[in-house]
């Protein structure tokens, strides 16, 4: 399994040799993009503002999957579970107690993290495809659990999210900016993690398990920590999804949701920057919008995109080295 996790890391982007400069350029693009996004609602129509709000939520979900790949070397097709936990935390606090996102977002984060840890514990010794299959089983159980807890979750019909964060401000703007701020916060947190002691420890535990062992990092701890972080981000994704979409229902958290999040993560080349996350999120949000007339094309297109990106990731280094080799020869 170590072989497979190592080669995921050799996707373009992470393989760039000039790391420091690449990072600065990436963060520059991020700042620019963030500035544009802050101004955007004043330039575009309401339906686009709404779609972008959902897009931010999906971007956060894509980040949750990418974190697991980057820091744990594992692939999850069960992140709809964590998103569902976050979304229902928001919706239930909203409808039952009249609490807004200010109170429920932290709860979603905590619950997502707890669920991540709770799932990581029984699966702590699994890796690679075994973990993937158990996350698949997790995703499959979600709609059923939601539907059967209808006294809490509203069953098939779902729940509405209506409390506003700042009373008086237009709802569409609130939905947009809540998503944007949460996305930026997650990206910022992940950037800090990359340079923190804990983040480096996790990377070490992934890349060189034996070395990490020697430094006193237990594999089980690393796995549980990564799943906790990933689950927490998944919870935030769900919370924003619920708030931006103003409704939650079991049909938004099926096995396919999980697969789509993975598709988004692959499409963004498992990137953790704002730009990459938005590429993944936009792919998940905007493609269905453009194809709303012919829904059956969506899975085909997603499948092709998934394959295309994987094959590009596979062949690009080869093509690049071939080009450079021929240039050097001439």
């Amino acid at each position: 399994m170590s072989k497979s996790s190592a080669s995921i890391e050799t996707m373009p982007g992470s393989a760039s040799g000039n790391h420091a400069r690449g990072w600065l350029a990436a963060s520059g693009a991020d700042y620019l993009l963030a500035a544009v996004l802050f101004a955007l609602p004043f330039l575009i129509g309401g339906s686009w503002t709404f779609a972008l709000g959902i897009c931010f939520a999906n971007s956060i979900g894509v980040l949750a999957v990418s974190v697991l790949v980057r820091y744990g070397g594992e692939v999850s097709i069960g992140h709809s579970f964590f998103a569902a936990v976050g979304a229902y935390a928001v919706a239930i606090l909203d409808t039952r107690y009249g609490l807004s996102l200010v109170a429920s977002l932290p709860l979603a984060l905590v619950l997502g993290t707890v669920c991540g840890v709770a799932f990581a514990w029984p699966s702590r010794k699994l890796s690679g495809i075994y973990l993937a299959v158990s996350t698949m089983a997790l995703a499959l159980a979600v709609p059923e659990l939601i539907n059967n807890a209808d006294w809490l979750t509203g069953g098939y019909e779902g729940l509405y999210v209506s409390q506003s964060v700042i009373p008086g401000v237009e709802a569409s703007l609130q939905r947009y900016y809540a998503g944007l701020l949460a996305l930026i916060a997650v990206v910022y947190g992940l950037r800090r993690l990359r340079h923190s002691r804990q983040g480096l420890t996790l990377l070490l535990a992934k890349q060189h398990p034996a070395a990490a062992d020697a430094f006193g990092t237990r594999q089980v701890w690393a796995r549980i920590a990564v799943m906790g972080i990933s689950g927490g981000i998944g919870g935030v994704c769900g919370a924003i999804l619920a708030f931006a979409g103003s409704t939650v229902s079991p049909s938004s958290f099926t096995f396919w949701t999980s697969i789509f999040l993975l598709v988004g993560s692959v499409v963004s080349f498992y990137g953790l920057s704002l730009t990459r996350a938005l590429v993944g999120g936009a792919f998940l949000t905007l493609v269905p919008q453009f194809l709303s007339a012919s829904g059956a094309w969506i899975p085909v297109l997603y499948g092709l995109a998934l394959l295309g990106m994987i094959l590009i990731g596979h062949y690009l280094p080869r093509i690049r080295s071939f080009l450079f080799a021929s240039k050097g020869g001439a």
Binding site: I129, G303, A305, L307, I310, H314
Partner: peptide, 23 residues
């Protein structure tokens, strides 16, 4: 190269097969 990447790509074929059935 990587079994895990190949496994993910089978998900892509699954999506295509499902879409083709729908179409």
């Amino acid at each position: 190269e990587s079994e895990l990447t190949a496994t993910i790509s089978t998900l892509g074929f699954g999506l295509i097969a499902q879409g083709a059935t729908l179409l």
